[in-house]
Amino acid sequence: MPIAVLIAAEPLPAGELNAATDKLHQAGLVVGTSHWVEPGLVGEVRFTGDRAAANDALEPLRAAADVLVLDEAARDPRLLVSDMDSTMIVNECIDELADYAGVKPQVAAITERAMQGELDFEAALRERVALLEGLSEHVIADCLAQRIRPMPGARTLVRTLSRRGADCVLVSGGFHSFADVIGAELGFNAVFANRLVIEHGHLTGDLEGTIVDAARKAAILMEQSVGQGLEARQVIALGDGANDIPMLKAAGTGIAYHAKPAAIAAADAHIAHGDWTVLLHALGIARADWSD
């Protein structure tokens, strides 16, 4: 049975859950039970019918709260596959490196167009990395320490799901130099990313190995899922940009996070207001069971 979960940062009016129920009724859906998990903050409505119709019906409520409509069977994921930049961390690592190299405006403009899906990802990545030629490798450690910050709620989400038995995998179109550190800090079990070529202590402006692009992200998700013998409902993917779309579609549940329009359109649900603990609420995991 599908379930709609309303999650707000500030208390909603008492009648907001009734409003959700009414909108589902008006859309021709059969509404079951509804209740506040946390009064005014987290509410659930179970219903029978089409999830897409429910999403459309509940759209007006998204002005004040995150509303995630999921299959109840998806509330016990065994595999979580997530993007890194602007998803698990607040930054775009390549843009921050570019700032040290004095080329951030040029690189950030390319990044934005790539995230919107306007450019071929691999070509855009290689163009940006080429602009970093000559940058000292020591800048990477400085950048990690001084600029890179986890997305609010990211550590809690990953560690909570991992403790409950989910395999958590970080897949990044960024770089192992960052992703390995961030993955370990947040609690991921495995990390896939791109590798910068470094010679004599400086970036050469090149990459080595297979590029982790949109297709590779989706392929990693499928490899992990098939390898563990999982059903689609047991797999969740998280992302924010065009490069994440195939992965979001390949998962049983794709979640877009403060995302670009194309990623939102491809995902099953979208978090627009809150942090990553919104997903814990949507999965029905009580605060008392969250891990730090």
Rank of each mutant, 00 (worst) to 15 (best):
L6W: 09
A8V: 02
A9R: 15
P11Q: 13
P11G: 14
L24N: 03
L24S: 01
Q26Y: 12
L29W: 02
V30K: 13
V31I: 14
H35E: 11
W36F: 05
V37M: 05
R46I: 10
F47T: 03
F47G: 04
T48G: 08
T48D: 14
R51P: 08
N55P: 05
L58K: 03
P60L: 09
P60V: 10
L61Q: 03
L61M: 13
A64D: 01
A64T: 06
A74P: 02
A74S: 12
P77E: 04
S82A: 03
S86L: 04
I89R: 02
E92R: 12
E96R: 12
D99M: 14
A101I: 12
T111D: 05
E112T: 10
R113H: 10
A114G: 07
Q116H: 14
Q116M: 11
F121P: 04
E122V: 12
E127M: 14
L132C: 08
L135I: 10
E137G: 06
V139L: 08
C143S: 08
A145E: 15
A145T: 15
A145W: 07
A154T: 09
A154M: 08
R155P: 01
L157P: 02
T160R: 01
A166W: 06
C168A: 15
L170C: 09
H176D: 15
A184T: 15
N189M: 09
V191K: 08
A193I: 03
H200K: 13
L203G: 07
G205K: 05
E208A: 14
T210Y: 11
I211H: 03
V212M: 08
D213H: 06
A215E: 13
K217C: 08
A218F: 03
A219D: 07
L221C: 04
M222R: 15
E223L: 13
S225Y: 04
Q228L: 14
A232M: 09
V235L: 01
L238G: 00
L238W: 00
A242V: 07
A242W: 03
N243W: 04
I245H: 04
A251N: 02
A262L: 12
A262I: 10
A267T: 01
A267R: 00
A269L: 02
H270S: 09
T277I: 14
V278L: 07
L279W: 06
H281L: 02
A282Y: 03
G284Y: 07
R287L: 13
